[in-house]
């Protein structure tokens, strides 16, 4: 538990948190623009454009990348990881609280942005509430998987941030659009699959490319797999090792 709060304070005290907090206002701004002049069906716009495209497609991976790679990675960069790793604490008990702190902050930011902006944009439409619930559950599960993945990157390489960016914007952004079969390896698609499964709204409102069952299965596999690998890598982490 002390490690959890330590990481929590490290992450929330930094300048980047303020920047992310202001980025969380952007979806709200978009929702206000939509209310003032958009002519599309509110629930459809909220699900497809605001939440799927912007919140899940951009904000969630960026927030997870910032917190997921910083939770352990910035300690390794600064050299303070030595003080944690040289103590007789199981490495799993170091990694898991750090992961939990990263997930909590990522999910917190994105969830607030989802609920506030979604409520503004979809106010008064019949499917609005279902969409909102679906995406709220989805962004939390998505945050867990993304953070686990980025934490694994941060114990594998000191350039975790750029590696994560390449994964998010080249792989999830470009490759999965060109080669649709690779969707099964995209956390964004898992998140959208969960959103569709929980919301269970008509296909004219929102339809994910991946079925909810395979999305959940892959989420569990990738999330647990990445966490276990990260723990394994941290167990073998040599103190003083920087690369």
């Amino acid at each position: 538990m002390p490690i959890f709060w330590l990481t929590f304070r490290q992450l929330i005290g930094a300048k980047r948190t303020m920047l992310l907090a202001s980025a969380a206002l952007l979806p709200v701004l978009l929702a206000l623009v939509f209310r003032s002049g958009g002519d599309q069906e509110p629930a459809h716009w909220t699900a497809q454009t605001l939440l799927a495209q912007f919140v899940v497609g951009t904000m969630l991976p960026l927030a997870a990348l910032v917190f997921g790679t910083a939770a352990l990675g910035s300690e390794i960069d600064d050299g303070t990881a030595v003080y944690l790793l040289s103590k007789p604490i199981p490495r799993a008990a170091i990694l898991l609280p750090k992961l939990a702190a990263a997930v909590l902050l990522t999910a917190g930011f994105v969830l607030v942005a989802t609920i506030v902006s979604g409520a503004i944009a979809a106010w008064g439409s019949t499917d609005g509430a279902a969409v909102l619930v679906g995406f709220s559950v989805a962004v939390v599960t998505g945050a867990v998987v993304y953070c686990a993945l980025f934490m694994l990157l941060s114990v594998m390489t000191t350039r975790a941030f750029i590696a994560g960016l390449i994964y998010v914007f080249i792989w999830e952004g470009v490759v999965t659009r060109l080669f649709t079969g690779t969707r099964i390896f995209s956390v964004r698609q898992y998140t959208l699959g969960v959103a569709d499964g929980v919301a269970s709204v008509g296909n004219d409102v929102f339809k994910s490319d991946l079925s909810a069952a395979s999305a959940v299965l892959m989420m569990v596999l990738v999330g647990v797999g990445a966490t276990l690998l990260a723990i394994r890598r941290l167990r073998r982490f040599e103190i003083g090792e920087t690369a």
Binding site: L30, F34, W45, T49, F54, T58, F161, F169
Partner: peptide
């Protein structure tokens, strides 16, 4: 690195949505 990518990606995302939503 994060700042530069965040600028390109966020500004593009926001602008595309505003262009297809707003008027005037």
């Amino acid at each position: 690195t994060g700042g530069i990518i965040a600028y390109f990606v966020i500004s593009t995302g926001v602008s595309a949505i505003v262009a297809n939503t707003a008027s005037g």
